Amino acid sequence: MLSKYFVCFIIYSFFGWIYETIYCTVSEKAWENRGFLYGPCIPLYGVGAISAQFLFVDLPIQRFSHPSYLTIFLGCAVGSFILEYSTSYLLEKRFHARWWDYSHLPLNINGRVCLIFTVCFGIAGIIVTQFIEPPVIHVVDMIPQLLVELLALLFMFVFGFDMALTISALTSFAKEFERINDQINAQMAQRVEALYSKPETSDDEDDTAIKERLSTEYVKQWIKNATATQLGQFRHIAKFTHPVASTKALLDKGSEYLRRRKK
């Protein structure tokens, strides 16, 4: 049973990746590989779809055996609200980054959730439970149990490898930009010390201008040397929230520079 749920989880996560990638590619008019992971998988959709399947399809409770569209809509809307907000919060706390930001939309809460998308997810819940999950469950049920278990193990290995690769890349972002920030601060400290040791001339460049020039040069150098996977992850992070303001400014500058270069 667990193997079946995990295979369905991967399938729904893949469908979610297809939807998000098409939507964002059309909106941005450029290719967008959406999601937290590198692979074609968005776990948030998998968790939501599996929860809806368990609650409205598999759970042996009379009240939910033949739920109305209103019941499905409300359950999926409330569930997506909780899931989306908690996921955004945990990802930001762990990686100091956001993969989506609804701050520009009305009726949003801290940019993590908004009424428009909550309603959309409620409607999507009806579509998923009534038209997508039944054929998926039917196909998975047709597969021999041994093969389902082998598929679950294979998907688990690939999913775990992708998760480890993603976490490694995200962790390196913060460390690398903290190192760049330390280098800039060290050079600025040397400049201040040099100014105190000799009379300042009118040709001296302003400290703010120097810091801006150095940060731009360091960011461009990092982007030039970064791997393709690092650049891909960096591009579709919507917003960095690093606790150190100067490091956050560097991350924002790098992200903005990449988006401009992509266009």
Rank of each mutant, 00 (worst) to 15 (best):
residue 41 C to M: 15
residue 201 T to N: 12
residue 202 S to I: 14
residue 94 R to G: 03
residue 143 I to M: 06
residue 43 P to C: 06
residue 212 E to H: 08
residue 153 L to G: 11
residue 197 S to G: 05
residue 141 D to S: 15
residue 55 L to H: 04
residue 175 K to C: 02
residue 17 W to D: 01
residue 70 L to M: 11
residue 255 S to M: 04
residue 221 Q to N: 14
residue 242 H to N: 15
residue 242 H to I: 12
residue 252 D to V: 05
residue 130 Q to H: 10
residue 58 D to L: 11
residue 224 K to D: 12
residue 174 A to D: 13
residue 175 K to H: 13
residue 246 S to W: 01
residue 28 E to D: 11
residue 224 K to C: 04
residue 46 G to A: 11
residue 245 A to C: 02
residue 40 P to S: 11
residue 43 P to T: 06
residue 164 A to D: 06
residue 207 D to Q: 07
residue 208 T to H: 07
residue 224 K to T: 09
residue 60 P to C: 04
residue 250 L to T: 07
residue 199 P to F: 07
residue 218 Y to M: 13
residue 259 R to L: 13
residue 157 F to C: 08
residue 55 L to E: 01
residue 187 Q to K: 15
residue 201 T to Y: 04
residue 14 F to S: 10
residue 257 Y to I: 12
residue 225 N to Q: 13
residue 93 K to Y: 03
residue 258 L to V: 10
residue 4 K to G: 05
residue 160 G to T: 12
residue 2 L to V: 08
residue 152 A to M: 09
residue 115 L to K: 02
residue 47 V to P: 00
residue 116 I to D: 05
residue 40 P to F: 02
residue 150 L to W: 10
residue 85 Y to N: 03
residue 122 G to N: 05
residue 131 F to I: 08
residue 186 A to S: 14
residue 52 A to W: 01
residue 90 L to W: 00
residue 218 Y to F: 15
residue 86 S to H: 03
residue 12 Y to W: 13
residue 158 V to I: 14
residue 158 V to W: 05
residue 254 G to M: 07
residue 74 L to E: 01
residue 172 S to Q: 15
residue 189 A to Y: 04
residue 32 E to V: 13
residue 111 G to K: 02
residue 42 I to T: 14
residue 121 F to P: 00
residue 237 I to W: 03
residue 28 E to R: 14
residue 124 A to Y: 04
residue 154 L to N: 07
residue 176 E to A: 12
residue 114 C to A: 08
residue 159 F to E: 02
residue 15 F to G: 01
residue 36 F to V: 03
residue 105 L to R: 13
residue 236 H to M: 06
residue 210 I to G: 01
residue 229 T to H: 08
residue 119 V to A: 09
residue 23 Y to I: 07
residue 243 P to S: 10
residue 171 T to F: 06
residue 135 P to Y: 08
residue 10 I to V: 15
residue 112 R to D: 00
residue 164 A to E: 05
residue 179 R to E: 15
residue 39 G to A: 09
residue 18 I to M: 14
residue 218 Y to K: 13
residue 204 D to K: 10
residue 78 V to E: 01
residue 110 N to P: 02
residue 114 C to S: 09
residue 242 H to D: 13
residue 42 I to K: 11
residue 234 F to R: 00
residue 187 Q to H: 10
residue 203 D to S: 11
residue 50 I to W: 03
residue 39 G to Q: 04
residue 116 I to W: 09
residue 105 L to I: 11
residue 120 C to P: 01
